[in-house]
Protein backbone atom coordinates (compact mmCIF):
# COMPACT_ATOMS: atom_id res chain seq x y z
CA UNK A 1 0.00 0.00 0.00
CA UNK A 2 1.37 3.36 -0.99
CA UNK A 3 1.80 6.13 1.57
CA UNK A 4 -0.30 8.46 -0.52
CA UNK A 5 -2.69 8.02 -3.44
CA UNK A 6 -3.18 10.63 -6.15
CA UNK A 7 -6.06 10.40 -8.59
CA UNK A 8 -5.49 12.57 -11.68
CA UNK A 9 -8.00 10.90 -13.96
CA UNK A 10 -9.36 13.23 -16.68
CA UNK A 11 -6.47 15.64 -16.14
CA UNK A 12 -4.41 16.37 -19.22
CA UNK A 13 -0.76 17.19 -19.75
CA UNK A 14 0.94 18.94 -17.95
CA UNK A 15 -1.42 18.81 -14.95
CA UNK A 16 -0.71 15.20 -13.86
CA UNK A 17 3.04 15.92 -13.69
CA UNK A 18 2.41 19.16 -11.82
CA UNK A 19 0.22 17.28 -9.32
CA UNK A 20 2.85 14.56 -8.82
CA UNK A 21 5.58 17.13 -8.21
CA UNK A 22 3.40 18.91 -5.64
CA UNK A 23 2.45 15.67 -3.83
CA UNK A 24 6.02 14.39 -3.72
CA UNK A 25 7.04 17.54 -1.88
CA UNK A 26 4.69 16.52 0.93
CA UNK A 27 6.21 13.05 1.26
CA UNK A 28 9.30 12.12 3.22
CA UNK A 29 12.23 10.32 1.58
CA UNK A 30 11.56 6.65 0.71
CA UNK A 31 7.79 7.08 1.01
CA UNK A 32 5.68 6.00 -1.93
CA UNK A 33 3.07 7.76 -4.05
CA UNK A 34 0.52 5.85 -6.10
CA UNK A 35 -0.90 7.69 -9.09
CA UNK A 36 -4.01 6.83 -11.09
CA UNK A 37 -4.18 8.60 -14.46
CA UNK A 38 -5.84 8.24 -17.84
CA UNK A 39 -3.96 10.75 -19.97
CA UNK A 40 -2.65 8.58 -22.85
CA UNK A 41 0.75 10.33 -22.61
CA UNK A 42 1.06 9.59 -18.91
CA UNK A 43 3.08 6.36 -19.23
CA UNK A 44 6.02 7.90 -21.05
CA UNK A 45 5.75 11.14 -19.11
CA UNK A 46 5.92 9.56 -15.68
CA UNK A 47 8.96 7.51 -16.75
CA UNK A 48 10.73 10.65 -17.97
CA UNK A 49 9.70 12.55 -14.84
CA UNK A 50 11.24 9.89 -12.61
CA UNK A 51 14.46 9.70 -14.64
CA UNK A 52 14.95 13.46 -14.54
CA UNK A 53 14.02 13.94 -10.88
CA UNK A 54 15.89 10.79 -9.72
CA UNK A 55 12.82 9.34 -8.04
CA UNK A 56 12.29 5.64 -8.52
CA UNK A 57 9.38 4.33 -10.52
CA UNK A 58 8.51 1.17 -8.60
CA UNK A 59 5.74 0.02 -10.91
CA UNK A 60 3.73 1.14 -13.90
CA UNK A 61 0.74 -0.80 -15.16
CA UNK A 62 -2.00 0.07 -17.58
CA UNK A 63 -5.37 -1.56 -17.98
CA UNK A 64 -8.17 -0.31 -20.20
CA UNK A 65 -6.44 3.05 -20.64
CA UNK A 66 -6.01 3.70 -16.94
CA UNK A 67 -2.45 3.91 -15.66
CA UNK A 68 -1.37 2.95 -12.20
CA UNK A 69 2.08 4.12 -11.19
CA UNK A 70 3.97 3.92 -7.93
CA UNK A 71 6.84 6.31 -7.31
CA UNK A 72 9.24 6.04 -4.40
CA UNK A 73 10.66 9.37 -3.38
CA UNK A 74 14.44 9.37 -3.34
Amino acid sequence: MADMILDVKRQKCPLPIVAIAAQLKRLAAKETLEIIADDPAFGEDVKAFCRVTNNSLESLTVSEGVFNAVIRKK
Binding site: P14, V18, I20, A21, V52
Partner: peptide, 11 residues
Protein backbone atom coordinates in the same frame (compact mmCIF):
# COMPACT_ATOMS: atom_id res chain seq x y z
CA UNK B 1 3.19 27.85 -20.76
CA UNK B 2 2.75 24.06 -20.81
CA UNK B 3 6.45 23.58 -21.40
CA UNK B 4 7.47 26.10 -18.74
CA UNK B 5 5.15 24.52 -16.14
CA UNK B 6 6.39 21.04 -17.03
CA UNK B 7 9.96 22.25 -16.60
CA UNK B 8 9.49 23.65 -13.08
CA UNK B 9 7.57 20.52 -12.07
CA UNK B 10 10.57 18.44 -13.10
CA UNK B 11 12.88 20.56 -10.96
Amino acid sequence: FNIAIGAVSMG
